[in-house]
Amino acid sequence: MAAEQKQRLTLSFGPHIHYPLGRSTAELMWTVNLALMPALVWAVLIFGWQALALTVSAVLGTTLGEMAMCALTKTRVTLRDGSAVCSGILLAFVIAPGMPLYMPFVGGFLGIVLAKGVFGGLGHNIFNVALIARAIMMATFPVPMTTAWLVPKFGQIVPDGTTMATPLAVLKEHGLDAALALFQQMPDTALGALAPWEKLMLGLRPGCIGEVSVVFILLGAAFLLYKKVIRLYIPLSVIAGTVFMGLFSASPMLHSLAGGLWLGAFFMATDYVTSPITPRGQIVFGLGIGLLTGMIRIWGGYPEGVCYAILLMNIMVPALNEWFPPRRFASRFEEVNA
C-alpha cells in the first residue's frame, strides 16, 4: 500500500506546473536554447566571431557556477537540464558585443552562484538569473557595459573595434534627429537603402548581442509558441505596456524597436520560475514590466530599462500569485448557486 502511494506521488522541480505534464525541464530548456539560435547566428553575421566567443564565455561561466554550487551543496549535478546553458546564452545576449572575453564568464559565474545557487537551485530563484548576472556586470564593469557597442558590418570576422552609441542612448542624450541620423551609418542590404525602422526590424544597429534583430527574435519566439513552451500573455502585455509608454516619448518607433524589448518580452519575462502562474497574474506582470521599462527609459537615468523592469517585477511575482490565484474548480458554479 505504502509503496503504491509512493509511486503515485511523483515530486519534481519547477516549471511543469505551467504546462501539461509529461514535459521535462530539460526538454523545455533545450527548446528555448534552440529558439535562441537564429538571433545568435545573426549576431555572428554582423558582429563577427566575437559574438560567439562571448556567448561561449558566458555559458562556460554559468556552467562552472552550476557545477560549483552543485558540488558545494552536494546535490545532483543539474547541468543536463540546460537551464544553466540557457542563462549563459541569455546573459551573452544582453551584453555589448565589444567586451573583453573574460567579463561574461565572471558575470555568468557570479549570476548563477548569487541568484540561483544560494536560493537552492532551479525553481527556487526569485530573480531571472541572466538579468541578475547582467546587473552584476553593469555594476562591476560599467565602462565596457555601456560603451563597447560594435558597429554592425556584414562579414566582419574579427571586428575592427570601432564603437558607437546605441540608438536609445543617442535619443536620450542628443535627441531624436541625432538618433535617426545614426541609421545612415548602418550598412544597407543588397536590396537597396532601408528606412530606419526596417534596419531596426532586421537588426542593423549597434546594441546587445542578441537584442538587435527583432525579426530573428520573433522567429525563435514563433518556434517557442508553436512548441507551446511559452504563451502570449506575458510578451504581449510587456510590449503593450512599453508601446503605451512610448507615446510619452520623442519616438514611439525607437522605443518599441530599438531596445531589448523583444528579447526581454519573449525570452526573459517568460521565465517560468520568475513569472506568475495564472494568465491574469501574467498580464499584470507583463504590463508592469512594460510601464516600468518606459518610465526608466523616459524619466530615469539609464537609456534602457528592460533589465531592471523585469527584475523589479520579479519581486512582485509571489504577491501576484497570491492576488490572482487559479480559479477553484466549479467556483463559478458556487457563485451562481450561492
Binding site: 557570479l110 544560494v118 555594476a139 562591476t140 560599467p142
Partner: peptide, 20 residues
C-alpha cells in the same frame, strides 16, 4: 577585480555570504 563589492549591493552580498 570586482567593483561590485564596494557598491551597496555588494555590501549586502558580502554580509549575506558571511552569514551563510
Amino acid at each position: 577585480p570586482l567593483l561590485l563589492a564596494v557598491l551597496p549591493a555588494g555590501g549586502f552580498f558580502t554580509i549575506g555570504l558571511i552569514m551563510a
